[in-house]
Design a binder for these strands. Sequence first.
RNA 1: GGUGGGGUAGCUCAGCUGGUUAGAGCGCAGGACUCAUAAUCCUGAGGUCGGGAGUUCAAGUCUCCCUCCCACUACCA
Length: 581
Amino acid sequence: MSTLTPQRILVTSALPYINGVKHLGNLAGSMLPADVYSRVMRLLGHDVLYICATDEHGTPAELAAADAGLSVSDYCDQMHVAQAEAGAEFKLSYDYFGRSSSESTQRLTQAFALALEENGFIEERVSKQVYSVTDGRYLPDRYVEGTCPNCGFEAARGDQCDSCGKLLDPVDLIDPYSAVSGSKDVEIRDTNHLYLKQSEMSGRLRDWVETHRADWPALTTSIAMKWLDEGLRDRSITRDLEWGIPVVNEAGDIRDGFDGKVFYVWFDAPIAYIGATQDWAEKNGTDWEPYWRTDKGADATRYVQFMGKDNVAFHTLSFPTTIMGQGTEKAGQPWKLVDELKAFNWVTWYGGKFSTSQKRGVFMDQAVDIAPSDYWRWHLMANAPESSDAAFTWEEFQASVNSDLANVLGNFVNRITSYCVKKFDGQVPVGGVKTEAEIWIEAELSERLPRLVSYYEAREFRKAMAETRAIWAAGNEYLTQAAPWTHYKTDVDQAAMGVRTGLNLVALFGILAQPIIPDAAERILEAMSIPTDRRTWKFGEAADLVDALPHGHPVSAPPVLFAKIEDDDVVAWTERFGGGV
RNA sequence: GGUGGGGUAGCUCAGCUGGUUAGAGCGCAGGACUCAUAAUCCUGAGGUCGGGAGUUCAAGUCUCCCUCCCACUACCA
């Protein structure tokens, strides 16, 4: 059914910020769909490299470290491990989970900046910035607070007033103070920074985005075009911070006047995709160039990015400027641009925002404490925020787990395997003739399996989940039609036909479940004694699929695959996590 | 304020370039079955497609106005 040419595919998901274990919204909008997509592509026979990393620079990291009483470096070490563990608990199949603080990313970032400057895309300028004397640091706009000149709200942030919503400049605030220390000893200072001249890249960016109008989601192109239409402004790519990548000159020394300055986190974070690829290659003794250098094979690589909608501008404009700016007409350092970009909206908490400070929402480490990762993976993918924000509620979570996983899939596996064990000694039985029921299920599979694959290839996750569920449900319907328990009373051979077909469906369902619910899939395939090399998505004719297991092949009935979520659980979780606020 | 995304059955969502009685899952009601995690299968009830106006033989689908939610708005990331 699938006659795809194997392809080299690079998958990245937006880098989770180091500032704490991520909540379900972060997971659902980038890492999880990237993982499911990677798994599907691997099963289809493609050569997939899934790269992710922690994004470790910036002011929040410094502040969080200070809060924790740790050096930034130690804090990042700890949080990187915590995030890696949380990812592992969720069975995220990164080929490499790197760090934006790695040496490779540092080297690349500095080299990219030097090349950009050489090619005329970087310029040094002086700007005004709030400096807190007490804190001994420059403050990003949002870390300056004061009284709103518009409405008089006393805790307005420097970038926007939370009360009246008006956009502000920190210099407009009345009685400004540092949000870090509360100190009023703040002043405006001149500071020099490097600016990325995105404005000069507008034409090329626009042409490039235009070529993807057809294959990128509207959410992606519309955000990119909006920025282009408004006119791209040059963007400062350095900050007055200690923690980050130092700005150097050709000789590798700190650039004149850039003591105490580092690259802006958004300049180096996407470069960490490349740095992490290099680290992966080094660790595995292989080459990174075929993924990133178009002069070394990357033209044949398909690069797919996953991210939340807030990241789209950086991935369609800023980072591409960095990449395009490496190779001008004269000097060519041809780097790979993204081919396909999937952006997600937000998962909301009962329609509102996830909030750490108000303890609203569930974080990855807590989630796996209260329910198996498969449950979350299924629910978040089946309700992926693809066309608009999607509300998470405990009731929906319970409903999709109990109905889809426990009742439709789990019960199917259980009913047919335990019947086989009871009546046919736990062996795939022989005998019987094909009836309308078998013809029907074959037709269902012939229609649904290619459709499922095409949904995955189009990265339409909700539809892929719905199709998967429909295939599982078709198994139950088949059993109703075939009714082997009825035949068993008069014609054991015909009962064997139903059981045999049912068992083959169990194996197929396990194979289909692998990318979404890897743990349960493993248990199913283990119970069915399916060897690893027979678990790929090389679907043949449906007629062969439903009789693929060798006759006499041993199968066992796995213990209950999905324990149901009880109403009491929902009550307890709602209490603990404050749902339904 | 600007820009973009969204407002479709009780709930979560599908509905491509406008075309017969608007779809799915959950939930609900009735029936069937008994192999199974009181599971499964079938049938059914439920919607003036946020509001208004317009274009058209025909609009959930196009245009305009209004309204509500969300995101971004360039120094949070």
